[in-house]
Protein backbone atom coordinates (compact mmCIF):
# COMPACT_ATOMS: atom_id res chain seq x y z
CA UNK A 1 0.00 0.00 0.00
CA UNK A 2 2.81 2.37 0.86
CA UNK A 3 4.54 1.63 -2.42
CA UNK A 4 1.39 2.57 -4.28
CA UNK A 5 1.03 5.80 -2.31
CA UNK A 6 4.70 6.57 -2.89
CA UNK A 7 4.19 6.10 -6.62
CA UNK A 8 1.17 8.40 -6.61
CA UNK A 9 3.08 11.04 -4.65
CA UNK A 10 6.03 10.84 -7.05
CA UNK A 11 3.64 11.30 -9.95
CA UNK A 12 1.95 14.30 -8.34
CA UNK A 13 5.23 16.01 -7.50
CA UNK A 14 6.56 15.49 -11.04
CA UNK A 15 3.72 17.59 -12.51
CA UNK A 16 4.57 21.09 -13.71
CA UNK A 17 4.52 23.71 -10.97
CA UNK A 18 3.91 21.23 -8.16
CA UNK A 19 6.53 21.35 -5.44
CA UNK A 20 5.00 19.18 -2.78
CA UNK A 21 2.08 17.07 -1.60
CA UNK A 22 0.74 15.67 1.67
CA UNK A 23 -1.74 12.84 2.20
CA UNK A 24 -3.66 12.67 5.44
CA UNK A 25 -5.92 9.99 6.95
CA UNK A 26 -9.31 10.31 8.67
CA UNK A 27 -7.69 11.01 12.03
CA UNK A 28 -5.57 13.86 10.66
CA UNK A 29 -2.41 11.77 10.76
CA UNK A 30 0.09 12.02 7.93
CA UNK A 31 0.11 9.08 5.49
CA UNK A 32 2.90 10.50 3.36
CA UNK A 33 4.54 13.69 2.23
CA UNK A 34 6.80 14.50 -0.70
CA UNK A 35 8.64 17.61 -1.74
CA UNK A 36 8.95 20.86 0.18
CA UNK A 37 6.14 20.21 2.65
CA UNK A 38 5.80 19.66 6.33
CA UNK A 39 4.17 16.62 7.91
CA UNK A 40 3.17 18.90 10.80
CA UNK A 41 0.49 20.53 8.66
CA UNK A 42 -1.32 17.18 8.24
CA UNK A 43 -3.79 17.78 11.06
CA UNK A 44 -4.62 21.29 9.90
CA UNK A 45 -5.18 20.12 6.32
CA UNK A 46 -7.70 17.53 7.49
CA UNK A 47 -9.38 20.12 9.72
CA UNK A 48 -9.69 22.63 6.86
CA UNK A 49 -11.21 19.98 4.57
CA UNK A 50 -13.65 18.89 7.27
CA UNK A 51 -14.81 22.41 8.09
CA UNK A 52 -15.12 23.41 4.42
CA UNK A 53 -17.29 20.35 3.73
CA UNK A 54 -19.71 21.58 6.41
CA UNK A 55 -20.35 24.84 4.55
CA UNK A 56 -22.31 23.16 1.75
CA UNK A 57 -23.07 19.63 2.90
CA UNK A 58 -25.18 18.75 -0.15
CA UNK A 59 -22.91 20.13 -2.84
CA UNK A 60 -20.41 17.29 -3.10
CA UNK A 61 -16.79 17.29 -2.13
CA UNK A 62 -15.22 20.75 -2.02
CA UNK A 63 -11.79 21.61 -3.36
CA UNK A 64 -10.18 24.25 -1.19
CA UNK A 65 -7.60 26.56 -2.68
CA UNK A 66 -5.42 28.64 -0.38
CA UNK A 67 -3.70 31.38 -2.33
CA UNK A 68 -0.65 33.35 -1.37
CA UNK A 69 1.37 35.77 -3.49
CA UNK A 70 3.39 33.12 -5.30
CA UNK A 71 2.11 29.77 -4.07
CA UNK A 72 -1.15 27.85 -4.01
CA UNK A 73 -2.30 25.03 -1.78
CA UNK A 74 -5.10 22.79 -3.04
CA UNK A 75 -6.91 20.57 -0.56
CA UNK A 76 -9.29 17.82 -1.61
CA UNK A 77 -11.09 15.09 0.29
CA UNK A 78 -13.10 12.85 -2.03
CA UNK A 79 -15.65 10.88 -0.02
CA UNK A 80 -15.76 8.24 -2.76
CA UNK A 81 -12.24 7.05 -1.92
CA UNK A 82 -12.80 6.81 1.82
CA UNK A 83 -11.57 9.67 3.91
CA UNK A 84 -8.09 10.38 2.66
CA UNK A 85 -7.35 14.08 2.29
CA UNK A 86 -4.81 15.29 -0.23
CA UNK A 87 -3.01 18.62 -0.27
CA UNK A 88 -1.00 19.72 -3.29
CA UNK A 89 1.35 22.69 -3.16
CA UNK A 90 1.93 24.57 -6.41
CA UNK A 91 3.94 27.53 -7.57
CA UNK A 92 1.72 30.16 -9.11
CA UNK A 93 1.94 30.44 -12.86
CA UNK A 94 2.94 34.03 -13.62
Amino acid sequence: MEKHLDRVMDEVVSRAGVFGCVFVDRQGLCLGAKGKTSTESAGLIAAIAEQAAKLEPHSGDPIIKLESDNKDCLIFRPTSTGTVTAAVYKNKIQ
Binding site: V24, Q27, G28, S41, G43, L44, A46, A47
Partner: peptide
Amino acid sequence: CNTGHILAIEK
Protein backbone atom coordinates in the same frame (compact mmCIF):
# COMPACT_ATOMS: atom_id res chain seq x y z
CA CYS B 1 -11.55 13.99 16.77
CA ASN B 2 -8.70 15.09 14.50
CA THR B 3 -5.62 13.65 16.23
CA GLY B 4 -3.24 15.41 13.86
CA HIS B 5 -4.78 18.76 14.70
CA ILE B 6 -4.21 18.17 18.40
CA LEU B 7 -0.60 17.16 17.73
CA ALA B 8 -0.15 20.38 15.74
CA ILE B 9 -1.21 22.39 18.80
CA GLU B 10 1.91 21.25 20.65
CA LYS B 11 4.04 24.12 19.38
